[in-house]
């Protein structure tokens, strides 16, 4: 595999119950490509957290997964409100999710920390009122 393979998804921001479809599809695609299972697990969990964040906070967005010979890059982009304080948002347990989201089992303030934990590199570009782009890399 010398050239990169790219998957692109629209993340529907209107339906919380179907959130995660892109991650589930990516998991399937990566399995078919023969990517090591642990790398697939890390990519799909990090991406799912990102998808959930986009649905909760940003009315959806786009997810792009690029598969290289030895790494997978995930780019999540939204046109949401932006993250006012990235350092605070990265703290485990800090959350601005509303109560109805918490009642579904999310909003525990684990999303961004999990994304960082499960990837080898994570970069957050965010601008208030413009949106957020998160780029994550998983090496294998």
């Amino acid at each position: 595999m010398n050239e990169s393979i790219r998957f692109t998804f629209n993340v529907d921001g209107s339906n919380f119950t179907t959130a995660g479809q892109a991650s589930v599809q990516v998991k399937k695609n990566l399995r078919e490509l023969g990517i090591p299972p642990e790398a697939i697990r890390r990519v799909s969990i990090a991406m799912y957290e990102g998808e959930i964040n986009m649905v909760i906070h940003a009315h959806g967005g786009t997810a792009e997964v690029i598969v290289y010979e030895d790494k997978i890059v995930i780019v999540l982009s939204d046109r949401g409100p932006g993250i006012p304080n990235v350092e605070l948002a990265m703290k485990e347990g800090y959350s601005t999710a509303p109560d109805n989201i918490r009642s579904l089992g999310f909003g525990a303030g684990m999303g961004l920390p999990n994304m960082k934990r499960y990837t080898d590199d994570m970069k957050i570009d965010t601008e208030i009122g413009v949106g957020t782009t998160i780029t994550m890399t998983v090496n294998f």
């Binding site: 479809q21 991650s23 799909s44």
Partner: peptide
């Protein structure tokens, strides 16, 4: 809720 299906799939 429906999200448990996604979590179970991703965690296998």
């Amino acid at each position: 809720n429906m999200n448990i299906a996604a979590v179970a799939t991703l965690c296998d």
